[in-house]
Amino acid sequence: MIDRQRGMPTVLGSRIPLVALIQTLAVAEYLNFRHAANALGISQSSVSARVKALEEDLGVLLFERHARGVRLTEAGRHFVERVAVGIDQLDHAVRTAGMVARGEHGRLRVGIHALIPGSFPANLIERYREQHPGIEVQIAESAARESIMQVRANRLDVTFVAGSPELPDCHSRRIWSERLLAVLPSCHPLRDTEGVTWADLTNETFIVRQGGTGPQVHDHIVMRLAGNAPNLSILRFDVERGTLLSMVAQGYGVTIVGESTTLLHTSGVTFLPILDEPEPLAFSAIWSPHNRSPALQSLLDIAGQMSRSGRSI
């Protein structure tokens, strides 16, 4: 159609009431105005008037009327087929939007330092997926600094990091904690002790990862030993957690890990508690205050429930 004042095409679809399309689909289904009206719970005259008005707006005859009912014209058949697809898509969009708003559908992007079977984050993700099967959970593993940047850039909904950082532009909540352990080769002289102190480790060569929690492990070692170990040696390797443990077993050096790492059951190493470590290593959830995702809130709720029940690794 042409807008007579502007001489430009108008978008007719924007002026057609949705109810007119729904009633037209009903008539096309029953091929009878009375039956369609009964199915919709409205008067036959209302349906008839709506369809006639639609035909006039379109400038197209959709139905051929006869004594027993109606028959779709060829133009009507094409119109109804395409409208039916559009109505189905609209209905799906409405239902999906409601499910997303209720946290029943959508996606959740989670940053982690590791997903070790049996650990707190692995159990958390498993429980979340069981309770929210309609949510696609995407996992990203990276160093704490990088994952926090991704939260700020809205590329992650939440990330779990070691420590209890206080960030002015992000929410932070302590979720779980783990004992900090030293990892020594199985042949190490201290292997049969109940634990080690930081003083015991003064002359050791430490190895840490470049990624994951590696930078935080590095800083923690420096904080504990820098004043007492003038020749402190910390080597960084761009390897995965399992490879780092294998390197400890082969004598490259020692390292420190959270207790969940013991779940990897690596051969050739000994895990010993650090006896003078003042408190367990905390792990926190970091998320943007602007993120109103119901899926995120559900994950935080489950994490809180698990944390209150005393779950750690």
Rank of each mutant, 00 (worst) to 15 (best):
Q5A: 11
G7S: 02
M8R: 14
G13I: 04
R15I: 11
V19F: 05
A26Q: 00
V27K: 01
Y30P: 06
L31D: 06
H35Q: 14
H35F: 11
A36L: 03
I42Q: 00
Q44M: 13
R50E: 09
R50K: 13
A67M: 11
T73M: 05
E74T: 13
A75G: 07
H78P: 06
V80K: 04
V80P: 01
V85D: 14
D88N: 13
Q89A: 14
L90A: 14
D91I: 12
A93Q: 15
R95Q: 13
T96G: 10
R102A: 15
E104T: 08
G106C: 11
V110T: 03
H113A: 13
G118K: 09
S119E: 01
F120E: 00
P121Y: 02
I125G: 00
E130G: 08
H132C: 04
R145L: 13
S147E: 10
M149W: 10
Q150H: 12
N154P: 06
R155T: 08
F160L: 06
F160I: 04
G163Q: 03
S164E: 14
P165W: 08
E166G: 12
C170L: 15
S172C: 15
W176N: 00
A182F: 00
V183Q: 06
V183P: 00
P185D: 04
L190N: 06
R191K: 15
V196Q: 02
T202D: 05
N203R: 15
T205K: 05
R209D: 02
T213I: 12
G214P: 03
D219H: 10
L225C: 12
A226F: 10
N231V: 09
N231Q: 15
L232E: 00
L232T: 00
S233P: 08
F237K: 08
F237N: 03
D238F: 10
D238H: 14
D238K: 15
E240V: 14
T243L: 14
G251S: 09
G253H: 02
V254C: 01
V254W: 00
V257R: 04
E259C: 09
S260T: 09
L263N: 11
H265Y: 12
V269A: 00
V269I: 12
L272Y: 07
L272D: 05
L275D: 07
E279L: 12
A282H: 11
I286D: 02
S288H: 04
S288F: 05
S288L: 07
N291E: 07
N291S: 08
P294Y: 04
A295V: 09
L296F: 10
Q305N: 12
M306Q: 03
R308K: 12
R308C: 09
S309D: 10
S312D: 10
